[in-house]
Design a protein around this nucleic acid. Structure first.
Length: 276
DNA sequence: CTACCATCCTGGTTGC
DNA sequence: TGCAACCAGGATGGTA
């Protein structure tokens, strides 16, 4: 479900409500997510104070004192819900419940259990296997045409597939790959290696602007994605091509229709007339 | 390297 | 209305 804008929206919502809190109680109700939940989750977190929440790509990084870091990936259907204490009776697919000495109760709910939660030490963070190979953060100031072009150099795969590869750029998923390519007027089928120079600059700018616009809208709410506060993001109404097969190409007078193709088993939406 | 495939899991939607 | 097939925002590991 969640790509960078949704993860960032969750990060902001949780950080605002939870920073400074001390963990009072951890319940691990179901451990068989994408990777087994740490057996010592309870002992490592109880009594720890949350200092801040960072994000790297689609990963949330909860920094506690000790120093302990809780790494979370939401997978396709993972979400965090905040509720007023006391902890509510566990609902279906509530896998982890974190209570604090004061403040709201944090529940991790994940229907499909593709999510992941693990612990590490802060000083190992950059070298952690989950984070080590990630490409540049698209919202960092250093992310520009030359940086993107360098990451794509020599890749003979389609640019759409390359954007989904977290080693190329961190945080982009199927929706924002489609949307960024449309904004940059680049065909999703174009060989990644051929995206250089001015094209790479256009694509880097499109990635940045579409992600920033989505964050400003609170992310996209498809299916069951909601922000921690329970509000719905509304960027899904601003999609130019995603999910719009057959509709008139938006934003220009080309008269073409949005087409859906399958690349690597995933749906790609684009306008063949304006994206070359 | 690359492309392609299956896999993990559940639930909503679609089509008969 | 019932039921089965298909589809879904991710990541990984295997194969050719």
């Amino acid at each position: 479900m969640p790509e960078l804008p949704e993860v960032e929206t969750v990060r902001r919502g949780l950080e605002a409500k939870l920073t400074g809190g001390v963990v009072a109680r951890v319940q691990r109700r179901r451990a068989d997510l994408r990777a087994p939940l740490p057996r010592n989750l309870k002992h490592r977190l109880e009594g720890r104070r949350l200092e801040r929440i960072d994000r790297r790509g689609k990963y949330l990084l909860f920094h506690f004192d000790t120093p302990t870091v809780l790494i979370v990936h939401l997978g396709m259907s993972g979400r965090f819900v905040l509720t007023a204490p006391p902890a509510p009776p566990p609902a279906l697919h509530d896998h982890v419940i974190i209570e604090w000495r004061r403040g709201p109760v944090l529940t991790f709910n994940d229907v499909r259990r593709f999510g992941l939660m693990t612990l590490t030490r802060a000083h190992d963070l950059a070298a952690h296997p989950l984070l080590r190979g990630l490409g540049p953060e698209p919202l960092d100031s250093g992310f520009d045409g030359p940086a993107l072009g360098a990451a794509l150099r020599g890749r003979r795969t389609a640019i759409k597939a390359a954007l989904l590869d977290q080693r190329v750029v961190a945080g982009i998923g199927n929706i924002y790959a489609c949307e960024a390519l449309f904004r940059a007027r680049i065909s999703p089928r174009r060989i990644a290696d051929s995206v250089r120079g001015e094209r790479a600059a256009r694509l880097a700018a499109a990635i940045r602007t579409v992600l920033e616009a989505a964050i400003a809208a609170g992310g996209s709410s498809l299916r069951d994605y909601v922000q921690a506060s329970g509000e719905l993001g509304y960027f899904q109404h601003a999609f130019a091509v995603y999910g719009r097969e057959g509709e008139v190409c938006p934003g220009c007078d080309c008269g073409g229709a949005v087409r859906r193709i399958v690349q690597g088993g995933r749906s790609t939406f684009y306008c063949p007339r304006v994206q070359r």
